[in-house]
Amino acid sequence: MKRCAFLSMDSLEDFFSSDTMLFEPLKNVGWLVEEVSWRKTDVDWNVYDVVVIRSTWDYQDDAEGFMACLQRIEASSAQLQNSLNIVRWNISKKYLKELQNQGINIVPTLWFDSFSLPEIQAGFSHFDTPELVIKPLVSANADHAYRLTPENLKQQAQKLDTIFATREFMVQPFLTGIVDEGEYSLFYFAGQYSHSILKQPESGDFRVQEEHGGRLSTIQPCEEMLTTARHSLAALPEDVLYARIDLVRHKNEFVVIEIELIEPSLYFNMDPDSPQRFVDAFIEML
C-alpha cells in the first residue's frame, strides 16, 4: 500500500471539508491517506510517496513558515502536488496581473505596496463605482477583505492602515454580480473538467465562503464559462493536479476573480462522481 499525506491545518473544527470522501476510492487503488498538519515540524516526509496540499486554510497567517514546510517536502523523496513552483506562482494574487497580460479577463484591479488613503479614495472615480473591495495579495478564506464606501473608508482608514502596513494589497470595484447572482467555481483535475457550483453570499454579506454563511448549489456551466476556464488553464505556467477557477459576471461577460491552485475547497460533496474523477486524475498525474 502506497502512502499519501493530505496537508491540512491543526484543526478543521470550524471549517467545511469534503476531502475524506477521497479516502475510500484512493484506498481501492492502493493508496493509504492520512491528514497531516503543515505546522508539524518533526514529520519525516520521506515515508510518504505523495503529499497533496489540501485544507491548509490558515497558511496566510504564516506564509513564510508554510513555504518552509513545502520546501522540506520538496527536498524529501515525496512528490508534492500541486508543485512548489506553482504554489510560489499562485500564493500572491499578482498572478492575476500575469494572466491579464496573457489576455485573460480579470476583475479590474489596482495594485498597492503601501496604504495611502488618497490613492485608495481615487479608486472610486477610477472605477466609476460607489463601492470598493480591498484585500491582501496573500490571503485565504476572505481574511482581511473589506467592502468599502467613501464614508466607511474614512471611518476605517486607521484600522486599514494598520492591517495593510506590511501587506501588499489590491483594490477592485465591488461587483454587484457577486450579490445579485453569485460567484461560479469550475473544478478541473489534471486539466479535465469535473464539476461546477454557484456560491452565493448570505443576505447582507459579500463573502461566499460557507464559513461566512455562503449558500452553494450545483450548476451546469455555459460555454462562455468553459471557454474562459480553458483559456485560464492554458495560461498556467505548468500542468496541475487540481484547479478551481472562480468566475463572476461583470458587464455581461465572465471574468476571473481567482484561480485557486494551493488549497481550494473542491466540494466533492456537491458531485457524487467527483471523488472518482479526482482519483483517476491523481493516478494519471503520477
Rank of each mutant, 00 (worst) to 15 (best):
V171A: 11
E119Q: 15
G182S: 00
S194M: 02
D113V: 00
I163E: 05
Q192G: 00
K135I: 03
R147L: 15
F127M: 02
P150W: 08
S114K: 13
V138P: 02
I197C: 07
S114L: 05
S139D: 02
Q200T: 15
L110A: 04
I120S: 10
K199P: 12
E183S: 08
A122S: 15
E181L: 11
I106V: 13
F112M: 00
G103P: 10
S114H: 14
V179C: 05
S185M: 09
L198T: 07
E168P: 04
P136A: 07
Q172W: 04
Q156W: 11
A157V: 04
T109Q: 10
D113T: 12
S139Q: 10
Q172V: 00
N141E: 13
E181M: 03
F127L: 03
P130V: 01
D143P: 04
L175K: 02
F115T: 03
V179G: 00
L132I: 04
Y146T: 03
Q155G: 01
S125K: 14
E183T: 08
L117M: 11
L132F: 03
H126I: 03
A190E: 13
F115K: 07
Q192H: 13
Q155C: 10
Q121T: 12
Q102A: 10
E98N: 03
K154R: 12
S194C: 00
W111T: 03
S185T: 13
D128H: 13
E98D: 15
E119I: 05
E98W: 04
L175P: 03
A157L: 04
L117I: 14
I163C: 09
H195A: 06
I104S: 05
E151Y: 09
T129F: 01
L99Y: 12
P150V: 10
M170P: 02
H126N: 01
N152K: 09
Q158P: 02
E98F: 05
Q192F: 00
L110W: 08
A157E: 15
K199N: 08
N152E: 11
S185D: 07
Y193A: 06
Y146K: 10
E183F: 07
F112K: 02
F115Q: 07
L198S: 09
E119H: 10
W111K: 04
P136D: 01
T129N: 03
A190T: 05
S125D: 15
I120G: 12
Q200W: 02
S125H: 09
L137I: 05
L148C: 07
I197K: 04
Q172A: 02
V179N: 13
A122Q: 14
F124N: 06
Q200M: 12
I197D: 08
E183A: 11
T109R: 01
K135T: 02
L160I: 05
E151F: 11
E168Y: 13
R147W: 09
Y193W: 06
H195W: 04
Y188G: 07
F169G: 06
E181N: 10
Q102V: 01
K135L: 02
P136G: 05
T166A: 14
K159T: 13
A190C: 09
F164A: 08
G191V: 09
V179F: 09
R167Y: 12
Q100T: 11
A142R: 06
P108S: 04
I197R: 04
K199R: 15
L153W: 06
F169N: 08
I104M: 00
I120Y: 08
T149V: 01
N105T: 05
L198D: 10
E151D: 15
A122G: 12
Q172N: 07
F169Y: 15
L175S: 01
A157H: 13
A190N: 15
V133D: 01
P136R: 09
G177Y: 06
